[in-house]
Design a protein around this nucleic acid. Structure first.
Length: 1051
RNA sequence: GGGCCUAUAGCUCAGCUCGGUUAGAGCGCUUCCCUGAUAAGGAAGAGGCCGGUGGUUCAAGUCCACCUAGGCCCA
């Protein structure tokens, strides 16, 4: 006869099981069907942030993907249609650098020599390679996302969408060209990334000069003062445009000899010495707009040469007055922008001054320093000249000193929409909420224009064409480009170098010049932020699909994306549609290694996700990511924590299911077929289990609606523990007997629990669902992921019962502690236990019986009732001590400062109980009335009892009569036989024949007295004193003087 | 240099929103107990100046200020 359930071995290889489940999903197209199933439902829009397809996937990639999977699965089970489109971020410097490394290149000149077309082809290949690995990782971890429709930011459709959006921004006048100061190597002719700069610092000695700038207007002018300005780059003095001071710092005019110099007050003595005499003091802001005579008249700089204010100025070193050359310093450039000053750059890209300039014409910038110093000296402008040792960046390739250099660059004027960004941010549902006004809000408040362009090769080309007359044309599509050129370019690969070759007659009215594309590509972060429309190729294609899927209801990434994707998504959405691209965002903390360090290739501490999946299983990794610690805190991951998840959560869950299957099959119980009593006729414990189940459904649902996976996971783990370690433990006997009420209850709990857990751990739940549900209910879907999310039945949640069971378990714990302290094992029955606990009186008999069973006592009585009883025996009130304690939380509200005095009076017992339960307390002569809950009463039994008490009290009567001892012996024997059954390899349902003999009188008497009971417990069809006829291996126990032999019945 | 986050047992983390009695859990360790599913469960023990200093308060791990260390992002 077939068993109702497929057997579920207790031993399970989770990673192997996961691989089987993955195959089954693919065969049965479960993901596709889950989307079809919800096609008519309301849609819940999720955007997949495209990972950079560069490098190998690491465990930190797994983290975000787990959260990206959980909520869409949850919403899908709730009936929402959650389209999930994979995406790949294909462009950018990281890809270029990886390819450069592969090819052994050291700079842009190598790329140019190799050929841009060939180089970009290599980049494309590299992307494809890494995407394959990401896909494999994604599938293995059970992240359901549609790869067939994946968007690639390098696809022509995608690039065209970006162009369209840039044209919208351009037409609003927000895409403009300006200067950008960046570290630049004049020999290599290229800007360097921060990463490159960081590896090229060298300690060098530079001139340090203090120069006089005579003041010509403002408060210092009447004194005939000069600003004293300090710099370590004399060559930039040629381009001096302004002087910056800190608005809140005190500046002094000080007389030294026959001149007056202006310096910051805190630096006065360090710079001018003790002899300087202060003649005037101003706040920096009072000096604003004071004009001065610049040190060199070599280049024209109009409308400049006055004092500006800047918060970045420090009084750490120098003079507190900072020379400004906007072309050669990012801070300087910012100040210049604010004051509308021109950016004048007399240094050519090769690092030499323009030909024809006085003094320095044609000279390499560094070589100009001594010339300039000498000239200043000769003209009496040099106050002091020293050598200064400091760390300065050099080109990591050629050791040339870098130049901070203003390069022409394209900007998006995000500052123009800053207020809108702040409004959109305020309306965004951040998890955790602190990010909104904290890290992210702060970033928005300090918003600066987006430096969009990159002087590189592998990226979305900036679709701007410029003619010789400087007319700009921004092109929004290949079709538009075709109409401008007159050729059909709709099949053109819109990348460099092909796009660079496209020119057309300037469309500007009356202009006859030819327009060529500007050479830059764009920041790949723009690509990622453009995915809401880019993934559809919208609006050129699929405009309707885009319209209904904007904005996203949910996105999720780690904290480093505040300045990355979170920003670019919101900024582009606001710039193009005047609306942020997402409503809810979950922001995760980073995953660290076991030592708390960020995982990086550099440190070699990257945990390979595939290794974790194969060793512990993807479910274990998922559960850890979702439920251990706060998702928004940085967390450490290692093998130990994953092993714990497997043991405590996954295996406990699996084994509970395995237990059900074992006894359901043994008793031929089939859910829905074998009749079971209605819930309200089942034992109290069954109603408790169902109550906990529904309370869990309620809380998990609420937690997930709030994007709080940790809270949901905690509750689920609690239910698993409740079922395994209380419900099943307490109900074992009923399962052995095949009680349909118990089997139905556990089956229902596991069935609902499996659905609750499915979004978290999709593999093991699928395997359990298949065995517990799919195989027995033909009308239900063949996958848990095609089921509906559980509905809570609030009528079944019995809070009072829940609290009573908590008390029961608490009392059991206390009783066990009492036994331990008396050194009496639980197998030895005791006559009675006394319980002192609020709520014990109202505990139903069924629950009192649980306590008695667990503690193995024959009688359970309230302590108060027993006290009088025992008092008669022992002649006094000595059995119970009563102690009182004040409840500070209650007393504090009533008494404030007097709280400690009142509490002391209560502890001293100066109180009388009133009829309504409240107390009169005698506090230093005056009587105060306090409510019942202001006094905590504890009763403590005395001598002859084993006691455990923490809030509640359990006392055990330690008298062991000969009758009790014999019962204990019988139980010991049962245990020994069970052990022997197990070691013999018998199944739990096998019947046995048993023969025993004993040299110990007490043991013999006990076994004769309790023969029927022992035989029943160990499933013995025969239980006889003596020896079998045939040879059977004996088992002996010296303490009991017992020898017994057993064999399977009927053999 | 700026901003944000974090700091509680050997390790991993709760508790802090809204101050209240003896600061909890898991892992690990020691000793026991229980076991007719379990790689499980239970008891006891060892292990805490709750990062530091000051303040508010009858009362501070919790609120405030400053400091220190680490992390992240940006210069």
């Amino acid at each position: 006869m077939p068993t109702p359930f497929r057997p579920m071995p207790a031993q399970v290889d989770l990673p192997a099981l996961e691989r089987e489940v993955t195959e089954r999903w693919a065969e049965r197209k479960v993901f596709e069907r889950s989307l079809e199933r919800t096609a008519a439902g309301p849609s819940w829009v999720f955007y997949e942030g495209p990972p950079t397809a560069n490098g190998h996937p690491g465990t930190h990639h797994v983290e975000a993907r787990v959260f990206k999977d959980l909520f869409p699965r949850f919403k899908t089970m709730k009936g929402f249609h959650v389209a999930r489109r994979a995406g790949w971020d294909c462009h950018g410097l990281p890809v270029e650098l990886a390819v450069e490394k592969e090819l052994g290149f050291t700079g842009k000149s190598d790329i140019e020599a190799y050929g841009v077309a060939e180089f970009n082809a290599k980049c494309r290949e590299s992307v494809q390679r890494h995407v394959d690995e990401f896909t494999r990782m994604t599938e293995r971890m059970g992240y359901w996302v549609d790869f067939d429709q994946a968007y690639w930011t390098m696809d022509a459709d995608y690039v065209e969408s970006i162009w369209w959006s840039l044209k919208v921004i351009f037409d609003k006048g927000l895409l403009v060209q300006d200067h950008r100061v960046a570290p630049y190597c004049p020999r290599c002719g290229t800007g360097l990334s921060d990463h490159e700069v960081a590896q090229g610092y060298q300690t060098v000695t530079d001139p340090s000069v203090y120069v006089r700038f005579p003041v010509t207007s403002g408060p210092a002018a009447p004194l005939g003062a000069s600003l004293l300005v300090w710099t370590t780059t004399p060559w930039t003095l040629i381009s001096n445009t302004a002087v910056a001071v800190h608005p809140d710092v005190d500046y002094v005019a000080a007389r030294l000899g026959d001149e007056v110099l202006v310096v910051a007050e805190p630096l006065l003595r360090a710079v001018l010495g003790e002899d300087a005499e202060v003649v005037a003091t101003w706040k920096g802001r009072e000096l604003e707009q004071s004009s001065y005579t610049r040190p060199f008249d070599v280049v024209d700089i109009e409308g400049a040469h006055f004092v500006g204010l800047a918060d970045y100025v420090t009084v750490e070193d120098g003079t507190g007055l900072v020379h400004q050359a906007p072309a050669f310093g990012a801070d300087d450039l910012a100040v210049a922008r604010r004051y509308g000053l021109p950016v004048v750059n007399p240094v050519r890209p090769d690092g030499t001054f323009e030909e024809g300039l006085a003094l320095v014409g044609g000279m390499f910038f560094k070589k100009a320093d001594p010339v300039i110093v000498d000239d200043l000296q000769a003209r009496g402008l040099l106050f002091r000249h020293q050598q200064y040792e400091h760390s300065y960046p050099h080109c990591w390739r050629c050791d040339t000193a870098l130049l901070y250099y203003a390069l022409p660059s394209w900007y998006i004027r995000t500052t123009a929409v800053k207020d809108r960004l702040l409004e959109e941010n305020a309306a965004t549902d951040w998890h955790p909420p602190t990010i909104r006004n904290g890290r992210y809000g702060d970033w928005l408040n300090n918003n600066i224009d987006w430096a969009l362009s990159r002087d590189r090769y592998w990226g979305t080309p900036l679709p701007i064409w410029r003619c010789e007359d400087d007319h700009l044309t921004c092109v929004g599509s290949l079709a538009e480009l075709s109409s401008l050129t007159g050729d059909d370019l709709t099949a053109l690969d819109p990348h460099r170098p092909f796009i660079d070759a496209i020119t057309f007659g300037c469309p500007q009215q009356g202009c006859a010049s030819t327009a060529t594309r500007v050479p830059q590509v764009i920041d790949c972060w723009y690509d990622a932020g453009a995915m809401p429309f880019g993934q559809w190729g919208a609006p050129h294609r699929n405009k309707a699909e885009f319209d209904v899927s904007y904005p996203a209801q949910y996105i999720c990434e780690a904290i480093d994306q505040t300045r990355g994707w979170f920003y670019t998504l919101m900024a582009i959405g606001t710039l193009v549609f005047d609306k942020s691209s997402y409503e809810t965002v979950l922001c995760l903390g980073h995953i660290l290694d076991a030592e708390g360090r960020k995982m990086s290739k550099h440190l070699g501490n990257v945990l390979d996700p595939f290794e974790l999946f194969e060793r512990h299983g993807a479910d274990a990794v998922r559960w850890y990511m979702l439920c251990s610690g706060s998702p928004w805190s940085a967390r450490r991951v290692g093998h130990e924590v994953l092993e714990e998840v497997v043991r405590k959560v996954l295996l406990t869950y699996w084994n509970t299911a395995s237990f059900l299957v074992l006894y359901a099959n043994a008793n031929n119980w089939t859910p829905g077929v074998t009749p079971a009593p209605p819930l309200d006729e089942r034992p109290l414990l069954d109603r408790w289990a169902i109550s906990e189940l529904h309370a869990t459904v309620q809380e998990v649902d609420a937690a997930l609606e709030d994007f709080d996976s940790q809270r949901a996971g905690k509750r689920i783990a609690q239910l698993i523990d409740d079922l395994s370690n209380w419900y099943v433990r307490r109900s074992r006997r009923r399962f052995w007997e095949g009680d349909p009420a118990a089997l139905s209850t556990l089956h229902e709990c596991l069935e609902v629990l499996t659905r609750l857990m499915a979004p978290f751990v999709p593999f093991v739940t699928e395997a359990v669902h298949e065995r517990l549900v799919s195989h027995v209910y033909a009308d239900l879907p063949d996958s848990v992921h095609l089921r509906d999310w559980p509905q809570v039945d609030e009528a079944l949640v019995d809070t009072a019962l829940g609290e009573q069971v908590v008390l029961v378990r608490r009392l059991v714990e206390l009783g066990r502690a009492a036994r331990a302290s008396a050194k009496i094992g639980t197998r030895q029955p005791l006559a009675r236990a006394l319980v002192g606990a609020a709520g014990f009186e109202s505990l139903p008999d069924e629950l009192r019986q649980e306590v008695a069973d667990e503690l193995n006592v024959q009688l359970l009585e309230p302590l108060s009732a027993a006290a009088g009883d025992a008092a008669g025996d022992s002649g006094g009130q000595d059995l119970v001590d009563v102690a009182w304690k004040g409840n500070f939380r209650v007393l504090g509200k009533q008494f404030g400062q007097r709280t400690p005095v009142v509490a002391a009076a209560i502890a001293a017992g100066s109180l009388t109980r009133r009829d309504d339960g409240s107390y009169d307390v005698d506090v230093e002569g005056s009587v105060e009335t306090v409510p019942a809950d202001a006094v905590l009463v504890t009763e403590t039994p005395r001598e002859g009892w084993a006691v455990a008490r923490v809030g509640e009290t359990v006392a055990l009567d330690l008298t062991i009569t000969p009758e009790l001892r014999r019962l204990g012996v019988a139980r010991d024997v049962v245990r020994l036989v069970q052990e022997a059954r197990k070691s013999t390899g018998l199944e739990v349902t096998d019947r046995i024949e048993l023969w025993w003999e004993s040299t110990d009188d007490q043991t013999r008497q006990a076994l004769l007295e309790h023969a029927d009971w022992v035989a029943g417990e160990v499933l013995a069809t025969q239980f006889a004193e003596g020896r079998p006829v045939a040879e059977v291996v004996p088992h002996t126990d010296e303490e009991l003087g017992l020898t017994f032999r057993l064999r399977e019945a009927g053999r």
